[in-house]
Simulated assay, not measured.
Amino acid sequence: MRALTVVPTHPGSVAVIDVPDPEPAEGQLLVEGLFMGVCGTDHEIAAGDYGTAPQGADRLVLGHESLGRVRSAPEGSGFAEGDLVVGVVRRPDPVPCGACAAGHFDMCRNGRYTERGIKERHGYGSELWTVEADYAIAVNPGLADVGVLLEPTSVVAKAWEQVRRVGERSWFSPQRALVTGAGPIGLLAALIGTQLGLEVHVLDRVTSGPKPELVQALGATYHDGSAVDVFKTLTPDVVIEATGAGQLVFEAMAYTASYGIVCLTGVSSAGHKLPVDAGGLNRELVLENDVVLGSVNANLEHYRSAAVALAAADRDWLARLITRRVPLADAAEALTTTGSSDDIKTVVRLSESD
Results as ranks from 00 to 15, higher is better:
N282G: 12
S208Q: 07
M107T: 09
V31I: 08
G219A: 00
S341D: 15
H43P: 01
G51R: 02
G12E: 01
A73Q: 03
D224L: 01
V308S: 13
T338Y: 15
V200E: 08
D229S: 11
Q216G: 12
T5I: 15
V239I: 07
R90A: 10
D343F: 07
A47P: 11
G12N: 04
W171I: 15
Q55M: 02
T41Y: 13
G98C: 05
G37R: 10
A101G: 09
I185V: 11
L60H: 12
W160E: 07
V291P: 00
S353G: 04
A329S: 14
V163L: 09
A99E: 03
E26N: 12
T265S: 10
E352I: 02
A278I: 14
V215T: 13
P327K: 07
G260I: 07
G193F: 00
D237C: 10
C263I: 13
N289C: 08
A73K: 00
H223D: 11
G87P: 05
Q175C: 12
A217L: 04
D42L: 14
T235A: 14
L150I: 07
L234N: 11
G51K: 04
V202Q: 12
V16Y: 10
V6A: 08
G181E: 01
V31T: 00
E161C: 05
G125T: 09
V163P: 00
A144Y: 06
L264G: 01
G103L: 06
L196Y: 14
P20I: 08
V348S: 01
E333Y: 02
E132Q: 14
D224M: 05
L191H: 07
L143K: 04
A73F: 05
G279Q: 11
A99S: 06
L60E: 05
L60F: 15
H201Q: 05
L178F: 11
E81Y: 09
D106A: 15
E352R: 10
I322L: 08
G225D: 00
F172D: 05
S126M: 06
A190V: 06
P152T: 14
P275N: 06
D314F: 10
R69Q: 08
S208W: 06
L198K: 03
V61I: 15
L287S: 05
V148E: 09
E44M: 09
E81C: 11
N110H: 01
E26P: 08
Y135E: 07
R112Q: 13
G27F: 09
G246M: 13
H122D: 10
S269R: 12
G266V: 13
L310K: 02
R91P: 02
I137N: 07
D277R: 01
A3L: 05
R205M: 11
G12D: 04
G271C: 01
R91F: 06
R176S: 12
G78P: 03
T338K: 10
V276W: 11
K211E: 10
L285W: 04
H43V: 11
T337Y: 08
L67F: 02
E44K: 12
N289G: 08
R304I: 03
P54M: 00
S173I: 04
D237N: 13
A252Q: 01
V291E: 02
A46G: 06
A159E: 03
A309R: 06
D290C: 15
L178W: 11
E241L: 04
V146K: 00
W317R: 00
M1D: 00
V163K: 03
I17F: 08
P184F: 07
S305Y: 12
L187H: 05
V291W: 12
V326L: 10
R325M: 07
M107H: 08
E44S: 13
R325L: 04
D290A: 15
